[in-house]
């Protein structure tokens, strides 16, 4: 069998130096995706640096009201955390919309961000895939691609990012904290994942050896509401056909803040900047929502068998925007 080294890191420094000293190393979180990919032969790390013992397993409020989520916080703990549930319901809802109870108990926040596409061609070594094997081609483009991207795809890759959680983090203006050989830095969640372009093998902006240590959410100011909604083939344990995270605040009867991100439409959580711009300052009407979302989705380039994703995403976004504003307006009236 293919042998690999296993190192259990006790600190972030230990983890990054263990990674640096071994070529072909991978960080191991809950293993819910990486181990599967190893069994399939898609990943063949020379070393696994187990980071699940790192002291990054808490959710803490920072001075000023921001929230830091340690990279090792398990998905189920994240979804159940009172501060997350009360201040960032979109995040809690998104996490609970993903996977199954057993998987959420094992999966970590950092690992969730770094999970890989479930494109069937990526997972099948006998078929071409530019993400798995650059230059080999894309089996999905002319193949079975009902679940694939409608936004931001390239001739090289039409895969989608599978995470629900990352979509909420994107809409919530989260930042991903990283520690690597060149020190610590943070990247906006919206910029953390990449579009495929001509380098689909590179899922994220992470640099070699960098470890995700946490995610920081900005303070949830008064009146900020959020929600996540996902459409899928079965009621649980299915990846999104399309999903949306909406973060909203009304100010004086108009939209004072809008964060909108789509899942399962692109190679990364799709931050809908154009829609957000159109919403800002607008009265919260269904017509305004539809107009804004249509502006965003005008860029969609559906493939032969996934055109349904465009109206689905539109419906989801308009529905969640409507429900959030209805709740906010009702709440104000009461």
């Amino acid at each position: 069998m293919k042998e690999f080294a296993y190192v259990r890191a006790g600190s972030v420094e230990e983890a990054t130096s263990a990674y640096a000293s071994r070529t072909g190393a991978r960080y191991l979180g809950g293993g819910t995706n990486l181990v599967d990919l190893m069994k399939l032969g898609v990943e063949a790390p020379a070393a696994l640096i187990d980071v699940t013992r790192l002291p990054l397993d808490s959710v803490e409020e920072l001075p000023g009201g921001a929230l830091r989520i340690g990279a090792m916080v398990r998905n189920s703990d994240l979804a159940a955390h009172p501060l997350v549930r009360h201040r960032y319901p979109a995040l809690s809802q998104a996490v609970l919309a993903g996977a199954s109870g057993q998987l959420r108990n094992a999966a970590t926040t950092g690992g969730n961000l770094l999970q890989r596409t479930r494109c069937p061609y990526f997972q099948d070594l006998s078929k071409p895939c530019n993400k798995r094997e650059p230059g080999s081609g894309c089996g999905a483009r002319d193949g079975v691609h009902r679940d694939h991207a409608v936004l931001g795809h390239s001739a090289h890759c039409i895969a989608t990012h599978p995470s629900d959680m990352a979509v909420a983090l994107t809409a919530l203006d989260g930042r991903v904290e990283l520690v690597g050989p060149e020190g610590a830095r943070s990247v906006a969640a919206a910029d953390f994942h990449r579009l495929p372009g001509d380098r689909p093998e590179q899922d994220t902006e992470i640099r070699p050896g960098e470890l995700v240590t946490g995610v920081v959410l900005p303070a949830a100011t008064a009146g900020l509401s959020s929600a996540y909604r996902k459409a899928r083939d079965r009621a649980s344990y299915a990846f999104a056909l399309a999903s949306v995270a909406v973060v909203l605040r009304l100010e004086d009867g108009v939209i004072g803040h809008a964060g909108l991100a789509f899942g399962a439409l692109a190679h990364r959580p799709w931050r809908a900047r154009r829609a957000e711009e159109a919403l800002l300052g607008a009265a919260p009407t269904r017509a305004a929502f539809e107009h804004a979302v249509d502006l965003e989705l005008a860029a969609a380039q559906p493939l032969r068998d996934n055109a349904y994703k465009v109206p689905l995403a539109r419906n989801l976004a308009v529905d969640v925007l409507s429900r959030l504003t209805d709740a906010a307006l009702t709440g104000r009236a009461s």
Binding site: R118, D233, R234, A235, F239
Partner: peptide, 13 residues
């Protein structure tokens, strides 16, 4: 070709 993509009903269905 796996039970993640071939969707048999789950309890919630």
């Amino acid at each position: 070709s796996d039970l993640a993509s071939y969707h048999v009903p789950v309890h919630a269905d």
